[in-house]
Design a protein around this nucleic acid. Sequence first.
DNA 1: CCAACCTCATTGCATATGCAACGAGGACAA
DNA 2: TTGTCCTCGTTGCATATGCAATGAGGTTGG
Lengths: 151, 151
Amino acid sequence: MTASSDMPPFDLGSFTPYRLAVAAERTSEALARQYRQQFGISIPEWRVLVHLGQPLDGAATVSVRDIEERVAMEKSKVSRAASRLEASGYIEKTVDAGDRRLVRLALTDKGRALMADLMPLATAYQQRIETLLGETFAGLEAGLDAILDAE
Amino acid sequence: MTASSDMPPFDLGSFTPYRLAVAAERTSEALARQYRQQFGISIPEWRVLVHLGQPLDGAATVSVRDIEERVAMEKSKVSRAASRLEASGYIEKTVDAGDRRLVRLALTDKGRALMADLMPLATAYQQRIETLLGETFAGLEAGLDAILDAE
DNA sequence: CCAACCTCATTGCATATGCAACGAGGACAA
DNA sequence: TTGTCCTCGTTGCATATGCAATGAGGTTGG
């Protein structure tokens, strides 16, 4: 009769939030390292850049708030990432003429050149993951959809 | 001919590392908040506790290094989590008699009592996730296995 | 015995983070 | 117009993090 006999069995390795956290860390880490070492870009910065490279909404208005919503990051995280990107010359910040509370973010030429380097790496990495997972990839996607769409 | 026309299309929302990161954050957040508010326990502390509650290896030796390996956290993160848990009276640290470099961690009675409160929450949460996912759960698991087992 | 080399855990330091508070600007009703 | 209330972005602060360095202990070969 050990101490653990009083407790219901619980295996961290089977706990979905834990598994997701480790999987996320593993998959992000590999790419993030490349970005950091080769370009000095962090994950928050990368997310901002990707969003700026894809003004999906036709309109060119890309404010900090827009990014905050779509990229699942806190205001302050976006703000600081944007400041670093501006300091590095990859983006420009301008006050919106219509609503002067808004800060519009836009890639500079240097930023576009950076993206031209970054995108192929990301695309190739995605390809590697899909190849690694093979037929289990579709199942993973369905599961992630279920989690991400949940309200 | 906009700026983005020169770039290959890339959607962050379809990028697996990003999706995993958001899914991990969402699923961890909900439980972590409960733990934090009700018990003052952080995720690193929770991971250490769970491991201590499950001396799977029969042997009772649970060192910082053991946890570091199994719980996918850095040495320093484990060390600091353990110090906080000790300060709160949930665990005890003792120098291993055989190898005095090792620090053996063990739950105190207070720690076991805490676990008795924490475990049901975790189990119930896991259940909720599986219910939410329904038939997609198996697919998610298979995908996560593929990622986590990769080397 | 001891010198070189390894392992374990902690800690110092620079950076990153979340959260709340703030200041500036805008909307709207009286 | 002015007062109240809202929104946007930044920043201060306390805490958390990763990484390298440290120190204590162990091991091995000569």
